[in-house]
Design a protein around this nucleic acid. Structure first.
Lengths: 140, 140
DNA sequence: GCGCTAATTGAGACTTAGTATCAGTACTCT
DNA sequence: AGAGTACTGATACTAAGTCTCAATTAGCGC
């Protein structure tokens, strides 16, 4: 989906400078599968400051390359996103793999909900947790 | 719904001691409308330590008197819950009032989702944000 | 009412996630 | 080459929450 080259091109297109720190963070992020925390990445880019990793990951999020994944305990994690638009996740609690759901299955209920509650609905969170097919079949 | 007396009875039934600190936290929590943070409560119970407020709110959560509300930015807030079981929230981003949705509208999609993804789904988060009827009508 | 003891407490150190500040470095543009 | 801006790492800081530990106390049996 994303690779180093395409991300560099996008950064250049937006007039961001291509620096060693940014390349290191992007490379580290692309090497990860599943979801990861910022400090996960901090640990994989020695020499790059924590603040820079945060800044770069924020930048990549704003550009749609990374998205936040809500975990079961309410904490946030990150992942390389496939679809840029609004989507939801199915997160494996055993191996941390993430399946993206590109259709927004919450949108169907928005109209009814607005009618029955009087709310003007502007946003929502929807994330699922479970065990992926692989983990379900392994003995664990 | 909940009042001081009924909560005290529940605590006693579970052999928890009724202490001034616990009474203060419970009272402060019951006085709040909408959702609130732990430190909100810490600020309203002078003399009670922060750790104790956290402990008491955790206790109340486990007993189903409080529930966590996920906010738009991914942070967690708390509120006095009406329904004890699984439910979702509609949170007003303007006045912080919260409407509880006692029906779990996500449950319908669980079967389909499990079939199409191979996941064994064990949990989910679903929270809505918007402007409540009152805030929608005010000039804001 | 008194004493016992386990439960509870507050202070404070610590953790995790993230932001703000700031002086120094390194590009870019001319 | 010089000026200006983008970017950087170090560090301090905030917010939310946990952990430890010595001191206190609620509520039991008497």
């Amino acid at each position: 989906m994303h690779n180093l080259k395409s991300i560099v091109q996008r950064l250049e297109a937006r007039k961001y400078r291509i620096t060693p720190a940014r390349l290191a963070v992007v490379t580290a992020v692309l090497e990860r599968s599943g979801h990861f925390s910022v400090d996960d990445i901090v640990g994989r880019v020695p020499g790059v400051g924590r603040a820079t990793v945060f800044r770069t990951m924020k930048l990549l999020s704003e550009m749609g390359m990374l998205c936040r994944v809500l975990l079961e305990d309410g904490s946030l994690s990150y992942r390389v996103s496939r679809h840029q638009g609004h989507h939801h996740h199915l997160v494996c609690v055993s191996c941390a793999s993430v399946q993206e759901l590109d259709a927004c299955i919450a949108s169907d209920m928005l109209g009814d909900l607005a009618r029955s509650t009087g709310f003007q609905i502007e946003g929502h969170w929807l994330e699922f947790f479970g065990r992926c097919a692989a983990c379900r079949n392994s003995v664990a």
